[in-house]
Simulated scan of single mutants.
Amino acid sequence: MTPTTTRIPLLATLAVAAALTACSRNNDEDLTAGQRLDGAVADAKREANETKRDAQQAMNDAEMKSSRAADRTAEVTTDMAITAKVNAALAVDDKLKATQINVDTREGQVTLTGQAPDPQSRERAATLASAVDGVKQVNNQLIVNRNS
């Protein structure tokens, strides 16, 4: 049971109690029983409307949080797909497939780290990464292996 669903019966009970208390006040002695009942009903309606607004706001907040979580999940999934596609593109290249290149993607920005056998392969890795759908930017941090 959520806090909102437990709060609604509690508030309704409090509204009825407040209405009954209003009926028994000494300064209401001049009012007829019907007038006091009408006042109690009006108070109960007001409390019910406030409770309804609170419940609606809580539901709107929950929907917004859920939407944000879904957006973040989609973003992470997209980043994972980009990383996989960049790794696949690098694995197909004859000079790059034998190298250890780490690919990290955050919000469509790909970072390449590790070693490249030569400057041309370093640039080729960046070109291959930038050609993948969804890549917004490539941060090429590959170091050319001087021992090759």
Rank of each mutant, 00 (worst) to 15 (best):
1 M>D: 08
2 T>M: 00
6 T>G: 12
7 R>P: 03
8 I>W: 03
12 A>G: 12
13 T>R: 06
14 L>I: 09
15 A>W: 01
16 V>A: 14
17 A>N: 03
17 A>C: 14
19 A>Q: 01
19 A>K: 04
22 A>Y: 00
25 R>H: 04
25 R>F: 05
26 N>G: 11
27 N>P: 00
28 D>N: 14
29 E>V: 03
29 E>Y: 03
32 T>R: 09
36 R>D: 00
36 R>F: 00
38 D>V: 02
38 D>F: 05
40 A>T: 03
41 V>H: 12
41 V>R: 14
42 A>P: 07
43 D>H: 14
44 A>M: 11
45 K>Y: 01
46 R>K: 15
47 E>A: 14
47 E>W: 13
47 E>H: 03
48 A>T: 04
49 N>C: 05
50 E>S: 05
51 T>R: 09
51 T>Q: 10
52 K>F: 05
53 R>Y: 08
55 A>W: 05
56 Q>I: 12
56 Q>M: 14
58 A>E: 12
58 A>V: 01
60 N>Q: 15
61 D>F: 02
61 D>C: 02
61 D>N: 15
63 E>M: 10
64 M>F: 02
66 S>C: 08
67 S>A: 13
68 R>Y: 04
68 R>A: 08
68 R>I: 00
71 D>L: 10
72 R>C: 02
72 R>N: 11
73 T>E: 00
73 T>G: 09
74 A>P: 14
74 A>Y: 12
77 T>P: 04
78 T>K: 06
79 D>E: 05
79 D>T: 10
80 M>T: 13
84 A>P: 13
85 K>G: 01
85 K>Q: 13
89 A>W: 00
89 A>Y: 02
90 L>E: 09
90 L>N: 07
93 D>L: 10
93 D>E: 10
97 K>E: 07
97 K>W: 00
98 A>H: 13
98 A>L: 07
100 Q>F: 04
103 V>G: 00
103 V>P: 08
105 T>K: 04
107 E>L: 07
108 G>A: 11
110 V>T: 12
111 T>Q: 12
111 T>W: 00
111 T>P: 13
111 T>V: 04
112 L>C: 11
112 L>S: 00
115 Q>R: 15
116 A>E: 00
116 A>K: 09
117 P>E: 02
118 D>I: 07
118 D>T: 10
121 S>H: 07
122 R>L: 15
123 E>M: 02
125 A>Y: 02
125 A>H: 08
126 A>L: 06
128 L>V: 11
129 A>D: 01
131 A>Y: 01
131 A>G: 14
132 V>Y: 00
132 V>N: 04
132 V>R: 04
133 D>Q: 10
134 G>T: 00
134 G>M: 02
135 V>C: 12
136 K>S: 07
138 V>G: 06
139 N>F: 10
140 N>A: 08
141 Q>A: 14
142 L>W: 02
144 V>G: 03
145 N>G: 14
147 N>W: 10
147 N>K: 15
148 S>F: 07
